[in-house]
Design a protein around this nucleic acid. Sequence first.
DNA 1: TAGAGGACTTAGCACAAGCGAG
DNA 2: CTCGCTTGTGCTAAGTCCTCTA
Length: 780
Amino acid sequence: MTISPNRAHKSKNLESYTSDEEEDDMPLSQASIKKRRRVKINDILDDDEGDGDEDEDEDATLSSIAVKNKKQKISKIKVEEFDGSSSSQEKKVKKSKKKSKKVSKKMISDPKNETKQESDDDDKPLKKEVSTELENDEEEEYKWWEKQNEDDSIKWTTLKHNGVLLPPPYEPLPSHVKLYYEGKPVDLPLEAEEVAGFFGAMLETDHAKNPTFQKNFFTDFLHVLEQNGGTKNGIEIKEFTKCDFKKIFDYYDLQREATRQKSSLEKKQIRLEREKAEEKYKFCELDGRKEQVGNFKVEPPGLFRGRGAHPKTGKLKRRVQPEDIVLNLSEDAPIPEAPAGHQWGEVRHDNTVQWLAMWKENIFNSLKYVRLAANSSLKGQNDLKKFEKARQLKDHIDTIRKDYRKRLKNKFMLERQKATAIYLIDVFALRAGGEKSEEEADTVGCCSLRYEHVTLKPPNTVIFDFLGKDSIRYYQQVEVDKQVFKDLTIFKRPPKQPGHQLFDRLDPSILNKHLQSYMPGLTAKVFRTYNASKTMQDQLDLIPNEGTVAEKLLRYNAANRTVAILCNHQRTVTKGHAQSVEKANMKIKELEWQKIRLKRGLLQLDSSELKKNKAYFKELDDLSKEDEASIHAHIIERERDRLHKKFARENDKKKFMKEKELPESELKEWLDKVEEKKKQYAKELKTNVVELRSSLNTVEKIKAQIEKLEQRILTATIQLKDKEENSEVSLGTSKLNYIDPRLNVAFCKKYNVPIEKIFTKTLRDKFKWAIESADENWRF
DNA sequence: TAGAGGACTTAGCACAAGCGAG
DNA sequence: CTCGCTTGTGCTAAGTCCTCTA
């Protein structure tokens, strides 16, 4: 069971958080909220708390402190020359230009085929330009970002669309694939079989091993079974542990394998058919313009996969029927036809909202929406507004910071809590943290922090340890402002104890109301956007405008990483991470050995080189005999492995083609060559005399070869470093949601970095407004 | 004036597609 | 050309914040 080290698990939560018994003897336990009780401590603080050390005026508010505190390491490797690929990159671009022209012609002749053409085109870099040109030819493209921003309570005047794409109906299992109960095959009604299938298909996942998931699934499964008349062959299912889903799992696993095995032609065929079926749902007409729809596919039924220790994980997410769906479109728009025998739940004409369709899901009774794609004008406008609001905060941030510093000493408890909370949100980029019900995973943000999430270490060190959004652990040991430390101590004073709210007077709405008094529209989340973009701007400003594109990119990524760390954006380390780091390290060692070997060879050829440049040969003694031997062994081992695999592969092929297989002797012959190499290495190790291949017969040639190797070592080292530093940090989220895209665009323009290097195609689409509106001097 | 409901953004994961090394 | 890893995208869960209602 592989679990993200960052995502805490239920058992851990239950241990470290308040247990119910404890609460019962608490005088205040009558509070309706069980775990998250509010214990209030005195409203007005007397002088001995309020007084204190005069402001040291340490300018400690800036988020840069948080970053520093996190011991952020920004790659400082000096790269001499690192861009081996730039010329080939250029070629690629040129090539694609030609190709693109062709494409655009095709597209003009058949504009409806736009998406198909796009996905067929494999040269990315210029695609954007091409489609822009095209759209310009076709019809004047709507550049909403050049228009004035009018009233936005009305989202559209006309809206036409084709409704939603419902998931395919359930395909029953073949009759020989069944659930087994106490070893006996069970005949399930179709509805129950489907649910069993959901579980069976994910038998090997972590979810299926989670007891809560199992319990919730089983309850819902039994319910569906009962609703549909029970099993058809008289078997009564009572206990989960007696159910055997293995056959079902095997069946679905085989299916998965089969799709994977399909030839690329077959896959393409399937893809084309799918695209054809989806075509009509992909676009809608908004105010007469064609815009892309985002999630036009209705979520298929399945088992709810809650994150972290979610009490509802594993519950059945039931199939959404057309009757559950509410459509939203213009009054004069044709109403898309409901599937045969069905009708839509409701048709609405509400132009104050941005959604095209909506339904209520059954796990939380919450609403799910079908909305426009990220590249649409509506989403773009919202995005721009968000970043403009964050930029507006620039003009208020000094006032706000001054004010909360002052209020940290206010004599009213509520005011101090507000001030402290804003401090934490500003400096550590915490989320607002709304109250959650018992039906959800126990995660917190600023306002919902509890006693046990904050440990205070005098004089002013604070350890935050809690589960935030998505049950991602936030763990930081940081130094805070002295007054903040004092206040936190007060907020934790008895009678408070584990389980109690740290900010007992506060919730996001109180906090946001206060924030509005500084600036209209200011809320807690704006601080995250502001600090992320501000940090990015500051980091980018530090990058020298010199060196290769690869070098600049490396530094760009380092800047991006600073932001991601500030926002605590994590990802689970990939399965093979440790292994692949190990492999990369080995490869570097090997390259280094090769270099040394070449240098030895060089000296054998002309020993006078040593006197000419002693420093050049200084690493000759770096490698111990043992290290060298182990590198040898590794190379030999890998070589053998490779040959064995090759042998097996070729024989598989021959078997398939009904040809005669290679004899074992052939493999032996190959291996003998490796054996020779091994002997040769052993000899070199003993005598210290190397035998370079015969083409390396002049000092120049060897030196050139050494240079190449050095280049490769450098590249590999940088890549490895980048990889290690990024292994637990997710850069994507901040790039997608927090860093003003115009910053990235300005960076690219100023530093001559192609935008494709930092924005994928989807991102370029989403941020088209930024790409076209920001110049190299744009600043956040 | 709290709490529910509604509408929107933000988030990591799973899986497919792409891509570079061998 | 194949294999195995990385990258990009789709999916949908999980937040925030606002409005409406009793």
